[in-house]
């Protein structure tokens, strides 16, 4: 809220739509499950480290899924791991978002044909919000993916739909 700092003479009121306010709050502090799978996880680490600084988008790694809003599936999902990922996802509180990072978790990547133990796409197990292509995606690409997710959240409607 830097724009409004020191602009008022006394305490004041800001009027906003509930939707805008909630969405703004949600999208600016997306805590991430600190969870890496394969090569893409190294790029994810590089994204959160000094050079690319994930923190400035409000993304902070949390060791437990119960604190987190977003999970980045960064790498190859094997059959042995897929059931565990599903459990991780189920433990996250709503609202929760998923970024699928890299070709492997999008579709099996280089292992699509002969990978007898590779799940060909994480979307067979859990729903995905944003797909980031690349093998590995550059940190810039992951940032772009995050911004896409933020746009998606900004457009979310909180109105109860009548059935």
């Amino acid at each position: 809220m830097g724009l409004l700092d020191k602009e008022f003479t006394d305490g004041n009121i800001v009027i906003a739509k509930a939707e805008d306010l909630m969405n703004w709050a949600r999208l600016s502090s997306l805590w991430q499950v600190s969870f890496g799978l394969a090569c893409c996880a190294i790029e994810m680490m590089a994204t959160s480290a000094s050079h690319y600084d994930f923190d400035r988008f409000g993304v902070i790694p949390r060791p437990s899924p119960r604190h987190a809003d977003i999970i980045i599936i960064s790498g190859t999902v094997t059959l042995k791991m897929a059931t565990r990922i599903k459990r991780l996802y189920e433990q996250m509180p709503e609202p929760k978002y998923i970024i699928s990072m890299g070709s492997c978790s999008n579709s099996g990547g280089p292992y699509w044909e002969h990978g007898y133990h590779v799940l060909k796409g994480i979307d067979r197990v859990i729903p995905v919000d944003v797909y980031v292509p690349g093998c590995p995606p550059r940190p810039e690409a992951l940032l772009e993916g995050l911004i896409k997710l933020q746009e998606k959240i900004r457009k979310t409607s909180l109105v109860k739909k009548s059935t």
Partner: peptide
């Protein structure tokens, strides 16, 4: 050691190995 303990489809690096269609409800082939 590498494959899941409950893998029933045999030993994957044998030349005549065939991959199963499903594992624990997940589709395996592309």
């Amino acid at each position: 050691i590498l494959m899941p303990y409950d893998w029933e489809a045999g030993h994957p690096l044998r030349k005549d190995y065939e991959n199963p269609e499903f594992y624990q409800g997940m589709k395996v082939p592309f």
